[in-house]
Design a binder for these strands. Structure first.
Length: 568
DNA sequence: CAAGTGACTTGCCCTGACCTGG
DNA sequence: CCAGGTCAGGGCAAGTCACTTG
C-alpha cells in the first residue's frame, strides 16, 4: 500500500518556502551534573606536600587526573595548554604557589577515580537497574520532541560536560579547558505556539527564538574554536531521513550525467587556462580517488590536514616510470581526523604532464592547486548539474561501487557466505573512501580464540568422519535397519559440523580482512540503503543480518521503499 | 574576492551493556 | 555465576558548503 509509505508522506509534508517545520516543542537540554568535590582524604600534592585546592581549581585538576594513563598527558602541547588554562581557574594564592606542572602530583586523585569506576562495575544488579531506570526516565522526559505532527527522538539532548579538549592528531589546542555550559549560554529554538522549555530554577536562557528555517532545538558556542554546537534530532527522524534520501537522489542524478562531466574535465586538461586545468585535474582526483573537497583551514587553529583542493607540493610525488607502470602519482598526506592517505596510482599522461606543470618553481609547502579552492570548484560543479558539489562524487562512487561489487561478488552459496560477500563489497567502499580504524586492542587475541575454535571444530569433524566410516562398515557387514539408521545419524552429524566449520572459517576471513578497515562510516553515510535492502530481498537475506536496530530505524524509509529490483 | 559565520554531515574512539562459554 | 570478549550507541571533533560581510 503505497498510500501509507513514508516517501509519500514526505512529499506531502515538504515545505516550498525553505521552512523546516511549523510546530516544534521540546523540554530543552539536560545539563552536566554539578561538580562533586573530592572527599577530604583524597589529596593533591605540590612539590611533595599536600595542598587543598579551591573548588574551581580542584575541578580542573580532576580533569587532568582522570587522564593520567592517557598518552595525551605526556605531550608537551597538551601539558602547556592545560597548565595555562588551569592557572586561570586558580585563586591568586594558588597561582603564586603552583608554578610548575612537573611538581604536581595527581596520582591519589587518579587512583580515587579508578576505584570509583571499579566500584561502579561492582554494583549490585539492583543498583544498576536503578541507574538504568533513571536514565530511561530522563530519556522519556528530555529525549523526545514534537516536530509538526510527529514525536521524534532527539539525537543529543545532553549538554557536553566540561573537560579537557582532546583534538585529533597534532592539534595545537589539545589540553585546553572546555568550560562548563550554563543555561545562560543556551539559545533555545522552538515554535511560538509551543510550550517553551523552562530553564533550571534561578537561571535564564541566553535567548529563546523561533526560527523554522533551521532544524536545531538548542545551541551554544564552545570556547575552544568558538564554533557553535547544536542539539538536533536523531537520524530516525523525518527531517534527517528526508535529507538523507535527497542526498542519494542527488547522487543518482550524478550517475545520469557523470559521463558527460568526465568527458568535460578530460577536455579541460588541455585548456589554455591554468585555473581550468587545475580544476579539471582536481576534479579527476575527487572522482577517481574519492578525495574530500579540502577547504582551507586557519593555520595554527587546528591540526594540519588537507583534502584535494588544499593538497600541497609535499603531498605528492611523481614517477614517470615505476616497476611496470607509467605515470605514477604517489599520495601521502593527512586527511580528515589526521588519518593518513597513502596511495600510488597510475594516471593518464595528460594528468601527469599537468601535475609536472603545477609543480614547477614551487616549494614543498606551496599549494599544488594554487588557482583553485573549494568555492571555485563547487561553483563550477553547480553549473554542471543542479545540486552538484564535491562530496556528491564520494556518495556516488561509494554507492555505485557497492552495487557493482554486490553484483560481482554475491555467490550462489549459503547465507553466511553471502554475508561475507556483502561485507567484502562494503569493504571495497571503505577502502575507496579511506575509512580506517585503529586495530582493536583485542584483535590478536580474538583471532587466536577463533583459530582455536576452528582447530577444535576440525578435530570434531575428523572424529565424526571416522564414526561415519565405522557406521558404514558396520552397515555393510550387518545390512540391518538399525545400522542403516546409525549411518544416517552420523552423516547428519558430519554435515552439521562441516557447516559450523565453514561458518567459523568465513568469520575468521572476514575479521582478518577487516583488521584496519572501518565499515561503519560508509554504511551509515555513503551507501544508498536501498541498494542493501534490494540485495537482501533479492537473495532472501533477513535485513537484520545487514542492519542492526538503530540502522533499521535510520533507514526505515529505504526499507519501506526499495523492492528487489531497485537500481541505484 | 577574502574572511567569517552558521548549519549541517561525516568520522573515529571509547564505554558499558550484553552475550557466551567454562 | 563469573570472566572475558563483542558490539551498539554515545560522544564530540572535524569536515563540507552556503551565505554574509567588508
Amino acid at each position: 500500500l503505497k498510500y501509507n509509505s513514508i516517501h509519500v508522506l514526505w512529499e506531502e509534508e515538504r515545505y516550498t518556502d525553505g521552512s523546516k517545520w511549523r510546530f516544534l516543542e521540546h523540554k530543552g537540554p539536560v545539563f552536566a551534573p554539578p561538580y562533586e568535590p573530592l572527599p577530604g582524604n583524597v589529596k593533591f600534592y605540590y612539590d611533595g606536600k599536600p595542598m587543598k585546592l579551591s573548588a574551581l581549581a580542584e575541578e580542573v585538576a580532576t580533569f587532568f587526573a582522570k587522564m593520567l594513563d592517557h598518552e595525551y598527558t605526556t605531550k608537551d602541547i597538551f601539558r602547556k595548554n592545560f597548565f595555562k588554562d588551569w592557572r586561570k581557574e586558580m585563586t591568586s594564592e594558588e597561582k603564586s604557589k603552583i608554578t610548575d606542572l612537573n611538581k604536581c602530583n595527581f596520582s591519589e586523585m587518579n587512583e580515587y577515580f579508578k576505584a570509583q569506576s571499579e566500584a561502579r562495575k561492582q554494583m549490585s544488579k539492583e543498583e544498576k537497574q536503578k541507574i538504568k531506570e533513571e536514565n530511561e526516565r530522563l530519556l522519556q522526559e528530555y529525549g523526545f520532541c514534537i516536530m509538526d505532527n510527529h514525536k521524534e527522538r532527539i539525537g543529543n539532548f545532553r549538554i557536553e560536560p566540561p573537560g579537557l579538549f582532546r583534538g585529533r592528531g597534532d592539534h595545537p589546542k589539545m589540553g585546553m579547558l572546555k568550560r562548563r555550559i550554563r543555561p545562560e549560554d543556551i539559545i533555545i529554538n522552538c515554535s511560538k505556539d509551543s510550550k517553551h522549555p523552562k530553564p533550571p530554577p534561578g537561571t535564564k536562557w541566553k535567548e529563546v527564538r523561533h526560527d523554522n528555517k533551521v532544524t536545531w532545538l538548542a545551541s551554544w558556542t564552545e570556547n575552544i574554536q568558538g564554533s557553535i554546537k547544536y542539539i538536533m534530532l536523531n537520524p530516525s527522524s523525518r527531517i534527517k531521513g528526508e535529507k538523507d534520501w535527497q542526498k542519494y537522489e542527488t547522487a543518482r542524478r550524478l550517475k545520469k550525467c557523470v559521463d558527460r562531466i568526465r568527458n568535460q574535465y578530460r577536455d579541460d586538461w588541455k585548456s589554455k587556462e591554468m585555473r581550468i586545468r587545475q580544476r579539471a585535474v582536481a576534479l579527476y582526483f575527487i572522482d577517481k580517488l574519492a578525495l574530500r573537497a579540502g577547504n582551507e583551514k586557519e593555520e595554527g587553529e587546528t591540526a594540519d590536514t588537507v583534502g584535494c583542493c588544499s593538497l600541497r607540493v609535499e603531498h605528492i610525488k611523481l614517477y614517470p616510470k615505476m616497476d611496470d607502470q607509467e605515470y605514477v602519482v604517489e599520495f601521502d598526506f593527512l586527511g580528515k581526523d589526521s588519518i593518513r592517505y597513502y596511495n600510488k596510482i597510475p594516471v593518464e599522461k595528460r594528468v601527469f604532464k599537468n601535475l609536472q606543470l603545477f609543480l614547477e618553481n614551487k616549494q614543498p609547502e606551496d599549494d599544488l592547486f594554487d588557482r583553485l579552492n573549494t568555492s571555485i570548484l563547487n561553483k563550477h560543479l553547480q553549473e554542471l548539474m543542479d545540486g552538484l558539489t564535491a562530496k556528491v562524487f564520494r556518495t556516488y562512487n561509494a554507492s555505485i561501487t557497492l552495487q557493482q561489487q554486490l553484483k560481482e561478488l554475491t555467490s550462489d552459496d549459503s547465507i553466511p557466505a553471502k554475508i561475507l560477500s556483502y561485507n567484502r563489497a562494503n569493504r571495497a567502499v571503505a577502502i575507496l573512501c579511506n575509512h580506517q580504524r585503529a586495530p582493536p586492542k583485542t584483535f590478536e587475541k580474538s583471532m587466536q580464540n577463533l583459530q582455536t575454535k576452528i582447530d577444535e571444530k576440525q578435530n570434531q569433524l575428523s572424529a565424526a568422519r571416522k564414526q561415519l566410516k565405522a557406521a558404514k562398515a558396520d552397515h555393510k557387514a550387518s545390512h540391518d535397519e538399525k545400522s542403516k539408521k546409525a549411518v544416517e545419524v552420523k552423516r547428519k552429524a558430519v554435515q552439521r559440523i562441516e557447516e559450523q566449520l565453514m561458518k567459523l572459517q568465513v568469520q575468521a576471513t572476514d575479521r582478518e580482512e577487516n583488521k584496519q578497515i572501518a565499515l561503519g562510516t560508509s554504511k551509515l553515510n555513503y551507501l544508498d540503503p536501498r541498494i542493501s535492502v534490494a540485495w537482501c530481498k533479492k537473495y532472501g537475506i533477513p535485513i537484520e543480518k545487514i542492519y542492526n536496530k538503530t540502522q533499521r530505524e535510520k533507514f526505515a524509509w529505504a526499507i519501506d521503499m526499495a523492492e528487489k529490483d531497485y537500481e541505484f
